[in-house]
């Protein structure tokens, strides 16, 4: 294992390796990226997206930009962070591209390279979410909400908490929120074991992608 890791090029060469060939970089590193070249630019995906108007570059456009080698414009875009995972594009695509997964893959790749838009709320929420589940094995909903409300600082957090208080109280009254859950959240019994698994899984994935070896991939 160690041997193969030492053979990996340092991360700065990732761009070198794929110089002028962003499509290949996507094919090698992005979930389901090998499908990008199959897009016929019909635009059904873009027209089917519930948040379509919020995408600076809808999926169809992203596919063309990838083929045109617009690496920075694609990876720094907040477009794919608008994906709600509704899977409408997948079931309607005439070429059966797994578009939802490609959008997730692009977002993940840009995030792991550390060049996704730092302030994008979905990116930040997704990070809080993953840390939440990776810690105890199950979602701590209250902690998740509070961390989300306070992600833009204390003052904003108080404002958000006030804004959400009515809703929170209604959830509490109907037995759908436990205020003590903040301190006494019941995760899984083998949380440590799961953490070990997730760490190992990430190491393997990073190694396969030639990531995780230097500061270049340490996001934020």
């Amino acid at each position: 294992m160690e041997k193969s890791a030492s053979k990996q090029p340092p991360p700065t060469t990732t761009a070198e390796k794929y110089r002028n060939n962003f499509l290949r970089e996507v094919e090698d590193n992005v979930e389901e990226g090998e499908w990008v070249k199959m897009c016929i630019q019909c635009g059904v995906c873009s027209g089917s997206c519930p948040l379509g108007s919020a995408w600076e570059h809808p999926p169809q456009e992203l596919f063309m930009m990838i083929r045109a080698g617009q690496r920075e414009q694609v990876l720094r875009s907040d477009s794919m962070w608008m994906c709600t995972s509704c899977y409408n594009c997948i079931v309607r695509c005439p070429r059966q591209l797994p578009i939802t997964h490609i959008m997730h893959g692009l977002a993940n790749y840009a995030h792991r390279l550390g060049i996704a838009p730092a302030q994008n709320p979905t990116r930040r929420f997704a990070k809080i979410f993953w840390d939440n589940i990776a810690h105890s094995g199950r979602v701590n909903e209250l902690l998740l909400s509070i961390k989300l409300y306070f992600m833009n600082g204390f003052g904003e957090g108080i404002r958000m908490a006030y804004h959400m208080a009515g809703m929170g109280f209604a959830m509490f009254k109907t037995g759908r929120l436990d205020p003590f859950g903040l301190f006494m959240h019941k995760g899984i019994d083998n949380a440590k074991e799961l953490q070990t698994m997730l760490t190992k899984a990430r190491e393997i994935e990073d190694r396969r992608r030639g990531l995780g070896l230097g500061v270049a991939v340490k996001a934020d």
């Binding site: 979930e31 990116r123 979410f129 993953w130 899984i188």
Partner: peptide, 17 residues
């Protein structure tokens, strides 16, 4: 001892594997 499935937002930090 079932655990979270990763939900629809897990991809960003969780990747594939």
């Amino acid at each position: 001892d079932w655990n979270c499935c990763g939900a629809s937002i897990g991809y960003a930090e969780g990747g594939e594997l």
